[in-house]
């Protein structure tokens, strides 16, 4: 069987998240859904367009959720899919968030923008296994209130963990409910979270600069780089380590990542055009 051959999947439901972002709930056209781990991704393709790497944003018993933002041709076609439509699926690929390493410790989840999607399976896991972790804090930053993802999950999350949110820009219309979170850069939330830096695992996902700024402040607060995990994004074509596109120096991001510990990648992220 060719590693390049997609499996036909069907859209079971479409959940609109924001103006440009939807969650596709998908299942195989036949057979069982593959086992995916939090942090892993699949290559999704609408008919006639290219494949794009999309992290799994919820792992249900027989359904996979993938949250997709319309940023280009392939994602435009994917976000336009309707219930009952077909799509191609290859995966799962890549490394997972190190949940086992966080058991018994404080867990710090930092999400920026769409970066909350690859981390939602972590939060789902925490919801189902809350007793396995000490303090759990979620720090979530987005551009503006309308970009906040998964609002329907927030109440449940708040019942079992601390959730702090901030937006970079807030313009409130007179008839709108006021934003209850903060305004300002996500790193401002870090000093507000309670964690034992010596006994914390941090998982960070978002735009690369957001991850760098966050990791820098986490490190300054005493968390070792090896306990800070980030999820990198590069141009992936094959997802199986055979096409060469997603190289970042000594890493093939699709094979060695996308989740990597910060100590391994920090020196690479500041080299220009690497």
């Amino acid at each position: 069987m060719s590693v390049y051959l997609p499996r036909p999947f069907v859209v079971d439901a479409v959940e609109r998240e924001t103006a440009d972002t939807v969650t596709l709930v998908i299942r195989p056209q036949s057979g069982l859904a593959p086992a995916m781990k939090a942090g892993q991704f699949a290559m999704l393709s609408a008919f006639g367009t290219g494949e794009v790497p999309i992290s799994v944003s919820r792992i249900a018993r027989d359904r996979l959720h993938h949250t997709i933002r319309h940023v280009g041709e392939a994602t435009r076609a994917l976000t336009a899919l309707k219930t009952g439509d077909s799509l191609g699926f290859r995966g799962p690929f890549g490394t997972a968030w190190p949940l086992a390493a966080a058991v018994g410790k404080d867990l710090l989840v930092l999400a920026g923008g769409l970066g909350l999607a690859p981390l939602r399976p972590v939060l789902d896991y925490v919801m189902n296994h809350r007793d396995r972790f000490a303090r759990v804090s979620v720090l979530y930053g987005t551009r503006e209130v309308s970009q906040v993802l998964f609002g329907r999950d927030h109440k449940a999350w708040r019942s079992l963990m601390s959730l702090r949110m901030t937006v970079d820009h807030d313009v409130r219309q007179p008839d709108c409910a006021p934003w209850s979170g903060q305004v300002g850069v996500i790193t401002k939330l870090i000093p507000k979270a309670t964690y034992d830096a010596q006994n914390t695992v941090a998982m960070v996902c978002g735009p690369e600069i957001m991850m760098r700024f966050s990791a820098r402040d986490l490190e300054a607060s005493g968390i070792e780089r090896a306990n800070i995990h980030v999820s990198l994004e590069r141009n992936m074509k094959c997802a199986v380590g055979l096409c060469g596109h997603c190289q970042l120096s000594n890493f093939l991001v699709c094979r060695d990542g996308a989740v990597l510990s910060y100590d391994r990648v920090a020196p690479l992220l500041t080299v220009r055009e690497l």
Partner: peptide, 17 residues
């Protein structure tokens, strides 16, 4: 050649080269 995607109605089939 990698594969061909063939669409019929809402369904799709992928045929390896």
């Amino acid at each position: 050649p990698l594969f061909e995607a063939i669409r019929s109605g809402a369904g799709v089939a992928f045929h390896a080269a």
